[in-house]
Design a binder for these strands. Sequence first.
DNA 1: TCGGTGTTTTAGTTTTGGCTAAAATATAAA
DNA 2: TTTATATTTTAGCCAAAACTAAAACACCGA
Lengths: 236, 236
Amino acid sequence: MSNATTTPPPSSSVGDYVKAIWELGGGTGTASTKEIADRLSVAPASVTNMLGRLRERGFVEYERYRGASLTEEGRLEALRLVRRHRLIETFLLEHLGYSWEDVHEEAERLEHAVSDNFTERLAEMLEHPERDPHGEPIPKVDGSLAPDDSRPLVDTEAGERVLISRVSHGVGGDDAPILVYLGERGLVPGRELVVGEVRALDGVVVVEDEDGVSHALGPALAASIFVRTYAESAQE
Amino acid sequence: MSNATTTPPPSSSVGDYVKAIWELGGGTGTASTKEIADRLSVAPASVTNMLGRLRERGFVEYERYRGASLTEEGRLEALRLVRRHRLIETFLLEHLGYSWEDVHEEAERLEHAVSDNFTERLAEMLEHPERDPHGEPIPKVDGSLAPDDSRPLVDTEAGERVLISRVSHGVGGDDAPILVYLGERGLVPGRELVVGEVRALDGVVVVEDEDGVSHALGPALAASIFVRTYAESAQE
DNA sequence: TCGGTGTTTTAGTTTTGGCTAAAATATAAA
DNA sequence: TTTATATTTTAGCCAAAACTAAAACACCGA
Ligand SMILES: [Mn+2]
Ligand SMILES: [Mn+2]
Ligand SMILES: [Mn+2]
Ligand SMILES: [Mn+2]
Protein backbone atom coordinates (compact mmCIF):
# COMPACT_ATOMS: atom_id res chain seq x y z
CA MET A 1 0.00 0.00 0.00
CA SER A 2 2.79 2.44 0.84
CA ASN A 3 4.99 3.68 -1.97
CA ALA A 4 7.85 1.22 -2.01
CA THR A 5 10.63 3.56 -3.10
CA THR A 6 10.04 6.82 -1.30
CA THR A 7 11.53 9.61 -3.40
CA PRO A 8 13.73 11.82 -1.27
CA PRO A 9 12.97 15.55 -1.47
CA PRO A 10 15.08 17.40 -4.03
CA SER A 11 18.43 18.48 -2.60
CA SER A 12 19.49 22.08 -2.92
CA SER A 13 21.73 21.17 -5.84
CA VAL A 14 18.89 19.52 -7.69
CA GLY A 15 16.69 22.49 -6.95
CA ASP A 16 19.19 25.01 -8.23
CA TYR A 17 19.68 23.07 -11.46
CA VAL A 18 15.96 22.87 -12.08
CA LYS A 19 15.57 26.54 -11.33
CA ALA A 20 18.46 27.44 -13.62
CA ILE A 21 16.91 25.51 -16.48
CA TRP A 22 13.61 27.24 -15.88
CA GLU A 23 15.21 30.67 -15.89
CA LEU A 24 17.39 29.97 -18.92
CA GLY A 25 14.59 28.44 -20.91
CA GLY A 26 12.16 31.18 -20.02
CA GLY A 27 9.65 28.84 -18.43
CA THR A 28 9.42 26.45 -21.32
CA GLY A 29 12.31 26.22 -23.80
CA THR A 30 15.63 24.50 -23.52
CA ALA A 31 18.94 25.15 -21.80
CA SER A 32 22.38 24.03 -22.96
CA THR A 33 25.00 22.36 -20.83
CA LYS A 34 27.28 25.36 -21.03
CA GLU A 35 24.59 27.86 -20.13
CA ILE A 36 23.73 25.88 -17.04
CA ALA A 37 27.39 25.43 -16.15
CA ASP A 38 28.03 29.16 -16.44
CA ARG A 39 25.00 30.12 -14.45
CA LEU A 40 25.74 27.74 -11.61
CA SER A 41 29.51 28.24 -11.72
CA VAL A 42 30.11 24.57 -12.17
CA ALA A 43 32.14 22.51 -14.66
CA PRO A 44 30.29 21.40 -17.80
CA ALA A 45 31.05 17.78 -16.95
CA SER A 46 29.19 18.21 -13.69
CA VAL A 47 26.16 19.44 -15.57
CA THR A 48 26.16 16.47 -17.92
CA ASN A 49 26.26 14.24 -14.89
CA MET A 50 23.42 16.03 -13.14
CA LEU A 51 21.23 16.14 -16.24
CA GLY A 52 21.37 12.37 -16.30
CA ARG A 53 20.14 12.22 -12.75
CA LEU A 54 17.46 14.84 -13.31
CA ARG A 55 16.19 12.74 -16.18
CA GLU A 56 15.98 9.65 -13.97
CA ARG A 57 14.03 11.70 -11.48
CA GLY A 58 11.62 12.85 -14.14
CA PHE A 59 12.47 16.53 -13.87
CA VAL A 60 13.88 17.04 -17.35
CA GLU A 61 13.83 15.70 -20.85
CA TYR A 62 17.35 15.34 -22.01
CA GLU A 63 19.24 13.65 -24.81
CA ARG A 64 22.95 14.04 -25.17
CA TYR A 65 24.11 17.05 -27.15
CA ARG A 66 20.48 18.20 -27.33
CA GLY A 67 20.21 20.36 -24.20
CA ALA A 68 17.61 19.95 -21.48
CA SER A 69 14.04 21.11 -20.98
CA LEU A 70 11.78 20.76 -17.97
CA THR A 71 8.98 18.24 -17.68
CA GLU A 72 5.77 19.38 -16.08
CA GLU A 73 7.03 17.97 -12.79
CA GLY A 74 10.27 19.87 -13.18
CA ARG A 75 8.45 23.06 -14.01
CA LEU A 76 6.37 22.80 -10.86
CA GLU A 77 9.43 22.13 -8.76
CA ALA A 78 11.13 25.19 -10.23
CA LEU A 79 8.11 27.37 -9.55
CA ARG A 80 7.89 26.12 -6.00
CA LEU A 81 11.43 27.34 -5.45
CA VAL A 82 10.89 30.60 -7.29
CA ARG A 83 7.86 31.28 -5.11
CA ARG A 84 9.91 30.66 -1.99
CA HIS A 85 12.79 32.72 -3.24
CA ARG A 86 10.70 35.77 -4.06
CA LEU A 87 8.67 35.62 -0.87
CA ILE A 88 11.84 35.36 1.16
CA GLU A 89 13.38 38.32 -0.63
CA THR A 90 10.28 40.35 0.15
CA PHE A 91 10.47 39.39 3.80
CA LEU A 92 14.15 40.19 4.09
CA LEU A 93 13.65 43.63 2.64
CA GLU A 94 10.44 44.61 4.32
CA HIS A 95 10.84 43.04 7.72
CA LEU A 96 14.52 42.53 8.38
CA GLY A 97 15.79 45.74 6.89
CA TYR A 98 18.01 44.10 4.29
CA SER A 99 19.12 46.28 1.46
CA TRP A 100 18.04 45.61 -2.07
CA GLU A 101 21.31 44.16 -3.22
CA ASP A 102 21.73 41.73 -0.33
CA VAL A 103 18.48 39.83 -0.43
CA HIS A 104 19.24 37.56 -3.35
CA GLU A 105 22.18 35.72 -1.87
CA GLU A 106 20.42 34.97 1.39
CA ALA A 107 17.26 33.84 -0.41
CA GLU A 108 19.31 31.57 -2.63
CA ARG A 109 20.19 29.48 0.43
CA LEU A 110 17.01 29.80 2.43
CA GLU A 111 14.76 28.71 -0.44
CA HIS A 112 16.08 25.17 0.08
CA ALA A 113 15.72 25.09 3.84
CA VAL A 114 12.21 26.36 4.46
CA SER A 115 9.19 24.06 4.48
CA ASP A 116 5.99 24.51 2.51
CA ASN A 117 4.35 25.31 5.81
CA PHE A 118 6.86 28.07 6.48
CA THR A 119 6.43 29.44 2.98
CA GLU A 120 2.66 29.74 3.19
CA ARG A 121 2.72 31.25 6.64
CA LEU A 122 5.25 33.76 5.40
CA ALA A 123 3.04 34.57 2.41
CA GLU A 124 0.21 35.22 4.79
CA MET A 125 2.31 37.44 7.02
CA LEU A 126 3.35 39.44 3.96
CA GLU A 127 -0.28 39.63 2.88
CA HIS A 128 0.24 37.61 -0.27
CA PRO A 129 2.35 40.01 -2.28
CA GLU A 130 2.09 39.78 -6.07
CA ARG A 131 5.66 40.87 -6.77
CA ASP A 132 9.02 40.72 -5.09
CA PRO A 133 11.22 43.76 -4.37
CA HIS A 134 12.78 43.58 -7.83
CA GLY A 135 9.35 43.64 -9.44
CA GLU A 136 9.34 39.96 -10.39
CA PRO A 137 5.94 38.30 -10.12
CA ILE A 138 5.58 35.73 -7.36
CA PRO A 139 4.18 32.38 -8.55
CA LYS A 140 1.02 31.24 -6.79
CA VAL A 141 0.88 28.00 -4.83
CA ASP A 142 -0.68 26.22 -7.80
CA GLY A 143 2.28 27.17 -9.98
CA SER A 144 0.57 29.86 -11.97
CA LEU A 145 2.61 32.93 -12.82
CA ALA A 146 1.53 36.37 -13.94
CA PRO A 147 2.65 37.01 -17.53
CA ASP A 148 5.46 39.46 -18.02
CA ASP A 149 4.07 42.63 -19.57
CA SER A 150 7.31 44.57 -19.37
CA ARG A 151 9.84 45.65 -21.97
CA PRO A 152 13.35 47.07 -21.67
CA LEU A 153 13.59 50.78 -21.03
CA VAL A 154 15.79 50.97 -24.12
CA ASP A 155 12.82 49.97 -26.27
CA THR A 156 10.79 53.03 -25.32
CA GLU A 157 10.52 56.27 -27.22
CA ALA A 158 10.92 59.87 -26.18
CA GLY A 159 7.81 61.31 -24.60
CA GLU A 160 6.46 57.98 -23.37
CA ARG A 161 5.10 57.84 -19.87
CA VAL A 162 6.00 54.53 -18.22
CA LEU A 163 6.08 52.71 -14.92
CA ILE A 164 9.14 50.82 -13.71
CA SER A 165 7.97 47.24 -13.72
CA ARG A 166 11.06 45.42 -12.63
CA VAL A 167 14.79 45.75 -12.29
CA SER A 168 16.87 42.84 -13.48
CA HIS A 169 19.17 41.37 -10.92
CA GLY A 170 21.33 39.11 -13.01
CA VAL A 171 22.66 35.89 -11.72
CA GLY A 172 26.23 36.56 -10.74
CA GLY A 173 25.31 38.81 -7.88
CA ASP A 174 27.93 40.98 -9.52
CA ASP A 175 25.48 43.69 -10.40
CA ALA A 176 24.95 44.75 -6.83
CA PRO A 177 26.42 48.19 -7.64
CA ILE A 178 23.69 48.73 -10.23
CA LEU A 179 20.99 47.91 -7.70
CA VAL A 180 22.58 50.21 -5.17
CA TYR A 181 22.73 53.07 -7.65
CA LEU A 182 19.14 52.66 -8.76
CA GLY A 183 17.87 52.15 -5.25
CA GLU A 184 19.55 55.30 -3.98
CA ARG A 185 17.86 57.32 -6.69
CA GLY A 186 14.44 55.82 -6.13
CA LEU A 187 14.43 54.11 -9.49
CA VAL A 188 12.52 51.12 -8.16
CA PRO A 189 9.49 49.13 -9.32
CA GLY A 190 6.32 51.18 -9.16
CA ARG A 191 8.08 54.44 -9.91
CA GLU A 192 6.63 56.53 -12.71
CA LEU A 193 8.93 57.90 -15.41
CA VAL A 194 8.69 60.08 -18.47
CA VAL A 195 11.17 59.14 -21.16
CA GLY A 196 13.15 62.16 -22.30
CA GLU A 197 15.55 60.80 -24.86
CA VAL A 198 16.68 57.41 -26.11
CA ARG A 199 19.98 57.99 -27.81
CA ALA A 200 20.96 55.20 -30.18
CA LEU A 201 24.44 56.64 -30.55
CA ASP A 202 25.73 55.79 -27.06
CA GLY A 203 22.81 53.91 -25.58
CA VAL A 204 22.06 56.58 -23.03
CA VAL A 205 18.46 56.95 -21.92
CA VAL A 206 17.33 60.12 -20.22
CA VAL A 207 14.29 59.90 -17.97
CA GLU A 208 12.50 62.23 -15.63
CA ASP A 209 11.04 60.88 -12.39
CA GLU A 210 7.94 61.87 -10.46
CA ASP A 211 9.83 64.57 -8.60
CA GLY A 212 10.96 66.16 -11.82
CA VAL A 213 14.51 64.94 -11.35
CA SER A 214 16.23 63.96 -14.58
CA HIS A 215 18.45 60.87 -14.83
CA ALA A 216 20.86 60.09 -17.64
CA LEU A 217 21.29 56.34 -17.69
CA GLY A 218 24.11 54.61 -19.54
CA PRO A 219 23.59 51.33 -21.41
CA ALA A 220 24.31 49.11 -18.41
CA LEU A 221 21.83 50.93 -16.20
CA ALA A 222 19.19 51.37 -18.86
CA ALA A 223 19.36 47.70 -19.80
CA SER A 224 18.51 46.61 -16.29
CA ILE A 225 15.32 48.63 -16.08
CA PHE A 226 12.13 47.16 -17.45
CA VAL A 227 8.97 49.18 -17.79
CA ARG A 228 5.38 48.90 -18.77
CA THR A 229 3.15 51.51 -20.30
CA TYR A 230 1.55 53.69 -17.70
CA ALA A 231 -2.20 53.44 -17.44
CA GLU A 232 -4.17 55.48 -14.92
CA SER A 233 -5.70 52.37 -13.43
CA ALA A 234 -2.46 50.38 -13.06
CA GLN A 235 -0.67 49.09 -9.93
CA GLU A 236 -2.70 46.87 -7.70
CA MET B 1 49.33 36.77 3.59
CA SER B 2 46.00 35.09 2.95
CA ASN B 3 45.16 31.90 4.76
CA ALA B 4 46.41 29.25 2.35
CA THR B 5 43.85 26.56 3.15
CA THR B 6 40.54 28.33 3.54
CA THR B 7 38.44 26.35 5.98
CA PRO B 8 34.99 25.69 4.58
CA PRO B 9 32.09 26.68 6.82
CA PRO B 10 30.78 23.83 8.96
CA SER B 11 28.20 21.73 7.13
CA SER B 12 24.86 21.09 8.74
CA SER B 13 26.03 17.63 9.77
CA VAL B 14 29.10 19.00 11.45
CA GLY B 15 26.98 21.62 13.17
CA ASP B 16 24.48 19.10 14.46
CA TYR B 17 27.24 16.90 15.87
CA VAL B 18 28.87 19.80 17.66
CA LYS B 19 25.54 20.92 19.03
CA ALA B 20 24.72 17.38 20.18
CA ILE B 21 28.00 17.13 22.05
CA TRP B 22 27.34 20.48 23.68
CA GLU B 23 23.88 19.44 24.78
CA LEU B 24 24.96 16.02 26.00
CA GLY B 25 27.97 17.32 27.83
CA GLY B 26 26.02 20.15 29.42
CA GLY B 27 28.24 22.83 27.94
CA THR B 28 31.51 21.37 29.13
CA GLY B 29 31.75 17.65 29.86
CA THR B 30 32.05 14.72 27.56
CA ALA B 31 29.74 12.72 25.30
CA SER B 32 30.06 9.07 24.36
CA THR B 33 29.79 7.65 20.86
CA LYS B 34 26.55 5.90 21.67
CA GLU B 35 24.94 8.94 23.23
CA ILE B 36 25.69 10.98 20.13
CA ALA B 37 24.53 8.19 17.85
CA ASP B 38 21.23 7.89 19.71
CA ARG B 39 20.61 11.60 19.75
CA LEU B 40 21.28 12.07 16.07
CA SER B 41 19.66 8.78 15.02
CA VAL B 42 22.80 7.64 13.31
CA ALA B 43 24.90 4.46 13.47
CA PRO B 44 27.69 4.42 16.06
CA ALA B 45 30.21 3.80 13.30
CA SER B 46 29.15 7.04 11.65
CA VAL B 47 29.84 8.87 14.88
CA THR B 48 33.33 7.42 15.23
CA ASN B 49 34.02 8.54 11.70
CA MET B 50 32.73 12.05 12.28
CA LEU B 51 34.56 12.47 15.58
CA GLY B 52 37.80 11.92 13.70
CA ARG B 53 36.92 14.69 11.31
CA LEU B 54 35.77 17.03 14.07
CA ARG B 55 39.11 16.50 15.77
CA GLU B 56 41.00 17.42 12.58
CA ARG B 57 38.89 20.54 12.36
CA GLY B 58 39.71 21.47 15.92
CA PHE B 59 36.16 21.27 17.22
CA VAL B 60 36.62 18.41 19.66
CA GLU B 61 39.16 16.64 21.77
CA TYR B 62 38.79 12.98 21.17
CA GLU B 63 40.72 9.82 21.79
CA ARG B 64 39.32 6.46 20.87
CA TYR B 65 37.15 4.82 23.49
CA ARG B 66 37.41 8.02 25.55
CA GLY B 67 34.41 9.98 24.30
CA ALA B 68 34.52 13.50 22.96
CA SER B 69 34.49 16.97 24.48
CA LEU B 70 34.34 20.34 22.80
CA THR B 71 37.31 22.62 22.37
CA GLU B 72 36.76 26.32 22.89
CA GLU B 73 36.27 26.67 19.15
CA GLY B 74 33.74 23.88 19.17
CA ARG B 75 31.91 25.39 22.10
CA LEU B 76 31.58 28.71 20.29
CA GLU B 77 30.35 27.00 17.15
CA ALA B 78 27.73 25.14 19.17
CA LEU B 79 26.56 28.31 20.86
CA ARG B 80 26.34 30.12 17.55
CA LEU B 81 23.93 27.44 16.37
CA VAL B 82 21.99 27.36 19.61
CA ARG B 83 21.55 31.13 19.39
CA ARG B 84 20.22 30.81 15.87
CA HIS B 85 17.98 27.92 16.76
CA ARG B 86 16.35 29.66 19.69
CA LEU B 87 15.91 32.97 17.91
CA ILE B 88 14.33 31.20 14.97
CA GLU B 89 11.94 29.31 17.24
CA THR B 90 10.90 32.58 18.81
CA PHE B 91 10.27 34.11 15.41
CA LEU B 92 8.27 31.15 14.17
CA LEU B 93 6.02 31.26 17.18
CA GLU B 94 5.58 34.98 17.57
CA HIS B 95 5.48 36.11 13.96
CA LEU B 96 4.49 33.21 11.80
CA GLY B 97 1.87 31.73 14.08
CA TYR B 98 3.56 28.36 14.46
CA SER B 99 2.37 26.26 17.33
CA TRP B 100 4.65 25.38 20.17
CA GLU B 101 5.29 21.83 19.15
CA ASP B 102 6.15 22.61 15.52
CA VAL B 103 8.90 25.17 15.89
CA HIS B 104 11.74 22.83 16.78
CA GLU B 105 11.79 20.81 13.59
CA GLU B 106 11.76 23.85 11.34
CA ALA B 107 14.47 25.57 13.39
CA GLU B 108 16.61 22.47 13.23
CA ARG B 109 16.96 22.96 9.48
CA LEU B 110 16.96 26.74 9.28
CA GLU B 111 19.73 27.14 11.84
CA HIS B 112 22.17 25.86 9.22
CA ALA B 113 20.91 28.01 6.37
CA VAL B 114 20.73 31.49 7.83
CA SER B 115 23.70 33.85 7.85
CA ASP B 116 25.10 35.72 10.83
CA ASN B 117 23.69 38.84 9.26
CA PHE B 118 20.22 37.30 9.14
CA THR B 119 20.52 36.12 12.71
CA GLU B 120 21.41 39.48 14.12
CA ARG B 121 18.75 41.31 12.14
CA LEU B 122 16.24 38.77 13.38
CA ALA B 123 17.40 39.32 16.95
CA GLU B 124 16.86 43.02 16.49
CA MET B 125 13.39 42.53 15.02
CA LEU B 126 12.50 40.34 18.00
CA GLU B 127 13.93 42.98 20.34
CA HIS B 128 16.70 40.77 21.61
CA PRO B 129 14.71 38.22 23.57
CA GLU B 130 16.44 36.56 26.49
CA ARG B 131 14.61 33.26 26.24
CA ASP B 132 12.98 31.16 23.56
CA PRO B 133 9.37 29.94 23.66
CA HIS B 134 10.36 26.88 25.69
CA GLY B 135 12.05 29.08 28.27
CA GLU B 136 15.59 28.22 27.23
CA PRO B 137 18.02 31.11 27.51
CA ILE B 138 19.32 32.48 24.20
CA PRO B 139 23.11 32.75 24.03
CA LYS B 140 24.47 36.22 23.31
CA VAL B 141 26.55 36.94 20.23
CA ASP B 142 29.74 36.64 22.26
CA GLY B 143 28.79 33.12 23.32
CA SER B 144 27.77 33.91 26.86
CA LEU B 145 24.79 32.07 28.25
CA ALA B 146 22.59 32.84 31.22
CA PRO B 147 23.04 30.18 33.93
CA ASP B 148 20.20 27.77 34.46
CA ASP B 149 18.51 28.57 37.74
CA SER B 150 15.69 26.08 37.33
CA ARG B 151 14.91 22.74 38.92
CA PRO B 152 12.42 19.99 38.06
CA LEU B 153 8.88 20.51 39.29
CA VAL B 154 9.18 17.12 40.93
CA ASP B 155 11.82 18.52 43.27
CA THR B 156 9.49 21.07 44.80
CA GLU B 157 7.51 20.74 47.99
CA ALA B 158 3.85 21.27 48.78
CA GLY B 159 3.01 24.90 49.43
CA GLU B 160 5.86 26.31 47.36
CA ARG B 161 5.10 29.17 45.05
CA VAL B 162 7.05 28.86 41.81
CA LEU B 163 7.32 30.21 38.30
CA ILE B 164 7.51 27.95 35.25
CA SER B 165 11.00 28.58 33.95
CA ARG B 166 11.15 26.21 31.02
CA VAL B 167 9.51 23.18 29.51
CA SER B 168 11.82 20.49 28.23
CA HIS B 169 11.35 19.57 24.63
CA GLY B 170 13.44 16.47 24.35
CA VAL B 171 15.31 15.58 21.27
CA GLY B 172 13.20 13.05 19.48
CA GLY B 173 10.43 15.47 18.67
CA ASP B 174 8.31 12.66 20.04
CA ASP B 175 7.08 14.67 22.97
CA ALA B 176 4.96 16.98 20.88
CA PRO B 177 1.84 15.69 22.64
CA ILE B 178 3.25 16.84 25.96
CA LEU B 179 3.87 20.32 24.62
CA VAL B 180 0.40 20.44 23.14
CA TYR B 181 -1.18 19.40 26.44
CA LEU B 182 0.78 21.93 28.47
CA GLY B 183 0.28 24.67 25.93
CA GLU B 184 -3.47 24.20 25.84
CA ARG B 185 -3.62 24.55 29.59
CA GLY B 186 -1.41 27.62 29.71
CA LEU B 187 1.33 25.78 31.53
CA VAL B 188 4.04 27.76 29.75
CA PRO B 189 7.18 29.60 30.84
CA GLY B 190 6.37 32.65 32.93
CA ARG B 191 3.27 31.11 34.45
CA GLU B 192 3.00 31.20 38.23
CA LEU B 193 2.09 28.07 40.15
CA VAL B 194 1.45 27.01 43.69
CA VAL B 195 2.47 23.45 44.41
CA GLY B 196 -0.35 21.51 46.02
CA GLU B 197 1.04 18.04 46.45
CA VAL B 198 4.07 16.06 45.35
CA ARG B 199 3.12 12.44 45.71
CA ALA B 200 6.12 10.12 45.82
CA LEU B 201 3.85 7.11 45.49
CA ASP B 202 2.85 7.61 41.86
CA GLY B 203 4.88 10.64 40.88
CA VAL B 204 1.85 12.84 40.49
CA VAL B 205 2.28 16.54 41.16
CA VAL B 206 -0.74 18.70 41.80
CA VAL B 207 -0.40 22.41 41.10
CA GLU B 208 -2.72 25.36 41.07
CA ASP B 209 -2.31 28.06 38.42
CA GLU B 210 -2.89 31.80 38.58
CA ASP B 211 -6.55 31.37 37.72
CA GLY B 212 -7.07 28.99 40.59
CA VAL B 213 -7.35 26.02 38.28
CA SER B 214 -5.86 22.85 39.67
CA HIS B 215 -3.81 20.46 37.52
CA ALA B 216 -2.85 16.91 38.43
CA LEU B 217 0.28 16.10 36.45
CA GLY B 218 1.56 12.56 35.99
CA PRO B 219 5.27 11.73 36.05
CA ALA B 220 5.82 12.34 32.33
CA LEU B 221 4.20 15.76 32.45
CA ALA B 222 5.72 16.79 35.76
CA ALA B 223 9.18 15.79 34.62
CA SER B 224 9.08 18.11 31.65
CA ILE B 225 8.29 21.20 33.69
CA PHE B 226 11.14 23.13 35.26
CA VAL B 227 10.55 25.91 37.72
CA ARG B 228 12.34 28.52 39.74
CA THR B 229 11.37 29.95 43.06
CA TYR B 230 9.03 32.85 42.71
CA ALA B 231 10.39 36.19 43.83
CA GLU B 232 8.30 39.36 43.62
CA SER B 233 10.90 41.07 41.47
CA ALA B 234 11.43 38.22 39.01
CA GLN B 235 10.77 38.09 35.24
CA GLU B 236 12.42 40.80 33.21
C1' DT C 1 40.69 -13.12 37.54
C1' DC C 2 37.60 -14.43 34.09
C1' DG C 3 33.76 -14.08 31.15
C1' DG C 4 30.05 -11.96 29.14
C1' DT C 5 27.73 -8.00 27.51
C1' DG C 6 27.51 -3.78 25.60
C1' DT C 7 30.26 -0.15 23.34
C1' DT C 8 33.43 1.29 20.05
C1' DT C 9 36.23 0.92 16.24
C1' DT C 10 37.71 -0.93 11.74
C1' DA C 11 36.88 -2.29 7.13
C1' DG C 12 34.47 -2.08 3.19
C1' DT C 13 30.30 0.00 0.51
C1' DT C 14 27.11 3.44 -1.12
C1' DT C 15 25.20 7.97 -2.75
C1' DT C 16 25.64 12.68 -3.96
C1' DG C 17 27.83 16.06 -6.32
C1' DG C 18 31.78 18.02 -7.32
C1' DC C 19 36.53 18.05 -10.15
C1' DT C 20 40.20 17.41 -14.31
C1' DA C 21 41.84 15.53 -18.57
C1' DA C 22 40.94 13.49 -22.67
C1' DA C 23 37.91 12.00 -26.28
C1' DA C 24 33.86 12.75 -29.12
C1' DT C 25 30.72 15.56 -31.38
C1' DA C 26 28.67 19.75 -33.33
C1' DT C 27 29.06 24.02 -35.58
C1' DA C 28 30.86 27.65 -38.14
C1' DA C 29 34.51 29.38 -41.31
C1' DA C 30 37.31 28.84 -45.12
C1' DT D 1 33.88 19.96 -48.26
C1' DT D 2 37.23 20.27 -45.14
C1' DT D 3 38.99 22.09 -40.98
C1' DA D 4 39.30 24.73 -36.82
C1' DT D 5 36.98 25.91 -32.66
C1' DA D 6 33.70 25.45 -29.21
C1' DT D 7 30.75 22.40 -26.80
C1' DT D 8 29.65 18.19 -24.75
C1' DT D 9 30.51 13.80 -23.04
C1' DT D 10 33.27 10.06 -21.03
C1' DA D 11 36.41 8.27 -17.80
C1' DG D 12 38.51 8.38 -13.65
C1' DC D 13 39.02 10.56 -9.32
C1' DC D 14 37.76 12.75 -4.69
C1' DA D 15 35.36 14.20 -0.32
C1' DA D 16 31.49 14.14 2.81
C1' DA D 17 28.45 11.32 5.23
C1' DA D 18 25.89 7.82 5.72
C1' DC D 19 25.41 2.39 6.12
C1' DT D 20 26.45 -2.90 7.60
C1' DA D 21 29.21 -6.57 9.37
C1' DA D 22 32.88 -8.00 11.89
C1' DA D 23 36.60 -7.33 15.09
C1' DA D 24 38.45 -5.11 19.23
C1' DC D 25 37.93 -3.25 23.54
C1' DA D 26 36.04 -1.88 28.27
C1' DC D 27 33.85 -2.85 32.20
C1' DC D 28 30.94 -5.28 35.49
C1' DG D 29 29.64 -9.22 38.07
C1' DA D 30 30.69 -13.70 39.67
MN1 LIG E 1 16.62 36.88 -6.34
MN1 LIG F 1 19.33 28.28 -4.36
MN1 LIG G 1 14.37 23.54 19.77
MN1 LIG H 1 20.13 21.25 12.98
